[in-house]
Amino acid sequence: MTTTFPINPPAPAALLLPEPGPVTLHVNGQSIALTIAPWTTLLDALREHAHLSGTKKGCDHGQCGACTVLMNGTRINSCLSLAVMHQDDEITTIEGLAHGDELHPLQQAFIDHDAFQCGYCTPGQLCSAVGLLSEGHARTAEEIRELMSGNICRCAAYPHIVSAIQEVMHAQPLRP
């Protein structure tokens, strides 16, 4: 039996695309001027246009958390947000967590606890953990696990990530 099966759909006519335009991002304390299509995601703007490839693309659907960055201190999935929306925001990526040679306490704790293997989800886990600590909602291991569940690690360094976060959390003074 032979049938004609008319998908992938018949090609629609190409739209008249909006021109790339100027977008200025403030990333890790620096202003970066880009000329990008308005539908460019924050993730692709960082990785492909600003060449800050520390932020990772794992799924491009907001399901894995590898692209997590901090927007004015709040953790977001950069793949689910357009760069053009963030011109007035302070973006912090994995490249901006350390102060010069001095690692952020979470970065050091991740090394000490072997909280990663392949390292691909690590920038997202770290940015997410920084956001988690500043949110101040998590106190117990169970709460950390619940509130870090947006960041998938297929190597499954999960127990070590949680112990790294706990160490830093308990070294910090509790928020009022």
């Binding site: 520390g54 090394i111 000490d112 072997d114 390292g119 770290l126």
Partner: peptide, 18 residues
């Protein structure tokens, strides 16, 4: 600790398309 730990926690480890 891993020899590549610092590269991985600072976003400096370069994967294929980077």
């Amino acid at each position: 600790p891993r020899v590549d730990g610092r590269l991985k926690v600072t976003g400096q480890a370069r994967y294929a398309t980077e």
